[in-house]
């Protein structure tokens, strides 16, 4: 069981780095979809599977919302990264630094919240750390929403171990869906002639 949990934490590292370095929005959403599967697994360590499934269902609904909106935008609306640094190598390097920091910090977090397990802590910290890194690198609506969803996914994986209220789960799902809807709104918020 622990081995699988570590594999899931590894998967989360791959998906969050993938979201950070990928330039194709389809790939980004694909990584996000996988990420929610990982979050579901980590959450199911502390919640009943039926309740943990909320995470993956909400996440995929958010992805569908963003995907459909993005699909309906003209090709000319495709975001080209205007702000440096944009190199993949640079992003991977910074992701590496953040990962090292997380590996160092995870035992301290486990001291503060004992009994959750290192894989859950590492997985959630990876998502939060790399999500924040992503947010620090862009102001493009689509990428900002991916970054925020990643940070929240990491937080929710950790918070699920501390709080098992149905109302909180519902409210956090509302926040995730709300973020996706805001993302869709921001993506389509353009001058009238620029819209499809």
């Amino acid at each position: 069981m622990t081995l699988i949990a570590w594999i899931v934490a590894g998967l989360l590292l791959v998906t969050s780095v993938g979201i950070l370095v990928s330039r194709d929005w389809r790939l980004g959403l694909g990584f996000l979809g996988l990420q929610y599967l990982g979050v579901f697994w980590l959450t199911s360590q502390h919640w009943p599977v039926s309740m943990a499934a909320i995470k993956v269902v909400t996440g995929w609904m958010a992805i569908a919302t963003l995907g459909i909106t993005r699909l309906n935008l003209k090709e000319s609306d495709k975001e080209s990264e205007q702000i440096l640094p944009e190199g993949r190598l640079f992003r991977m390097f910074t992701a590496g630094i953040v990962t090292v920091i997380i590996v160092t910090a995870a035992p301290t977090v486990e001291d503060i919240i004992p009994g959750i397990g290192m894989p859950v802590i590492s997985g959630s910290l990876i998502l939060m750390g790399l999500g924040m890194l992503h947010l620090g690198m862009t102001v493009q609506p689509f990428r900002v929403i991916l970054g925020l969803l990643t940070v929240l996914a990491g937080f929710e994986a950790l918070y699920a171990a501390l709080e098992s209220s149905i109302l909180v789960a519902a409210m956090l799902s509302t926040v995730n869906l709300g973020l996706a809807l805001v993302g869709a709104y921001l993506l389509s918020a353009r001058m009238p002639e620029e819209n499809v």
Binding site: L135, V139, V144, L148, L179, Y185, L186, S188, A189, E194
Partner: peptide, 20 residues
């Protein structure tokens, strides 16, 4: 932000900072 106005960095940062 009205729907006919492209979002600028201020709106995005508002969303990021308040969500964090």
């Amino acid at each position: 932000l009205p729907v006919n106005q492209a979002p600028g960095p201020g709106v995005m940062r508002f969303l990021i900072y308040q969500t964090m």
